[in-house]
Simulated assay, not measured.
Amino acid sequence: MVKFLKDVNREMRKVSWPKGNELTRYTVIVLVTVIFFGVFFTVTDLVLSQILELF
C-alpha cells in the first residue's frame, strides 16, 4: 500500500495542472455548453410533446 501511494504521489507530480486563467476559461466553456444543451433539449422536448399531442 505504501509503495502504491508513493507511486501515485510521483505520478501526480508529473501532471500538468492548468493555470488560474486556463481553469477559469475551461470552467466557463463547460458551463456555457451545459446550459446550451439543457436549453436545447428542453425546447426539443417541448416541441416534440406538442407535436405528439396533435395526434
Rank of each mutant, 00 (worst) to 15 (best):
M1L: 11
M1K: 06
V2E: 04
V2G: 00
V2C: 08
V2P: 00
K3P: 01
K3I: 04
K3D: 08
K3M: 03
F4A: 03
L5C: 02
L5H: 07
L5T: 01
L5R: 03
L5S: 03
K6L: 10
K6N: 05
K6G: 06
K6C: 03
D7V: 01
V8T: 03
V8C: 09
V8W: 06
N9S: 13
R10P: 00
R10L: 08
R10S: 11
R10W: 00
E11I: 03
E11V: 05
E11L: 11
E11T: 04
M12D: 00
M12T: 13
R13P: 00
R13Q: 15
R13C: 00
K14T: 04
K14Y: 01
K14N: 12
S16I: 15
W17L: 10
W17N: 06
W17G: 04
K19M: 10
K19H: 14
G20M: 11
G20C: 01
G20V: 07
G20T: 08
N21K: 13
N21Y: 15
N21C: 08
N21M: 13
E22P: 04
E22I: 04
E22M: 07
E22Y: 01
L23M: 14
L23A: 15
T24E: 14
R25T: 13
R25V: 05
R25W: 08
T27E: 12
T27K: 11
I29K: 14
I29F: 12
I29G: 02
I29W: 09
V30T: 09
V30K: 11
V30L: 14
V30W: 06
V30S: 12
L31T: 15
L31H: 11
V32P: 01
V32E: 07
V32C: 14
T33K: 04
T33A: 14
V34I: 15
V34A: 15
V34R: 06
V34Q: 06
V34S: 09
V34F: 13
V34H: 05
F36T: 09
F36K: 10
F36Q: 10
F36G: 00
F37V: 05
F37D: 02
F37T: 03
F37I: 03
F37H: 08
F37C: 06
F37N: 07
G38L: 04
V39H: 04
V39S: 02
V39W: 02
V39I: 15
V39A: 05
F40E: 01
F40W: 03
F41G: 00
F41L: 11
T42V: 01
T42D: 04
T42Q: 03
V43Y: 02
V43E: 01
T44G: 00
D45Q: 07
D45M: 02
L46R: 05
L46K: 08
L46V: 10
L46N: 13
V47N: 04
V47E: 01
V47G: 03
V47S: 03
V47H: 02
L48R: 13
L48C: 04
L48E: 05
S49M: 05
Q50S: 06
Q50P: 01
Q50E: 10
I51P: 02
I51F: 12
I51T: 02
I51E: 09
I51Q: 10
L52V: 01
L52D: 12
E53D: 15
E53W: 10
E53Y: 08
E53R: 12
L54H: 07
L54V: 13
F55K: 14
F55A: 08
F55G: 13
F55I: 14
